[in-house]
Simulated assay, not measured.
Amino acid sequence: MSMRKESFLAHVRERGEYRTLDEADRAARVVLALLGAHLVGTVRAELAARLPEAYALILLNPLQAAEPLTPERFVRATAAWIEGSTEKTAPWDIGAVLSTTAAAAGDVLTREVLLQLPPGYELLFGRPQPT
Rank of each mutant, 00 (worst) to 15 (best):
R50D: 04
D22L: 07
A90G: 14
T101Y: 02
A104T: 08
A104W: 11
P62M: 10
E6W: 03
S85H: 08
L63A: 14
P128Y: 00
E17M: 12
A96S: 14
P68M: 06
T20D: 04
L9T: 01
E23R: 13
L57P: 02
R73I: 01
I94C: 11
V108Q: 11
W81M: 15
H38T: 03
E67G: 03
R29W: 02
E46V: 02
A54T: 13
L32V: 10
M3Y: 02
Q64R: 14
S7P: 01
E23N: 10
L63Q: 14
R29E: 14
F8E: 01
R76E: 15
A103K: 13
R44L: 04
Q116M: 13
P118F: 09
A80M: 15
P119Q: 09
G41Q: 08
D25K: 15
M1W: 00
Q64L: 12
K88V: 15
R19C: 00
I94H: 11
Q116S: 06
D22T: 07
F74E: 14
A90C: 13
A79R: 02
A96D: 02
L59Y: 12
L59N: 10
R29H: 12
L35V: 09
V40L: 04
P68N: 07
P118A: 07
A105R: 12
V113G: 02
L59I: 11
Y55N: 03
T89E: 14
L117S: 01
R13F: 03
L35N: 08
T110E: 01
V31T: 09
A49N: 13
E46L: 12
R44Y: 07
L117R: 05
W81Q: 15
L47D: 07
R73V: 07
V97Y: 11
L51N: 09
V31E: 03
M3P: 05
N61I: 00
V108T: 12
R19I: 14
A90E: 13
P128Q: 00
F125G: 04
L21G: 02
G120E: 08
A65K: 08
G120A: 05
G95E: 04
P62S: 11
V31Y: 08
S2Y: 02
L98H: 11
Q64C: 01
A54Q: 09
L117G: 04
S2D: 01
A56Q: 06
R19D: 14
A105G: 06
L123W: 05
E6Y: 00
A102V: 00
Q116R: 12
F125D: 00
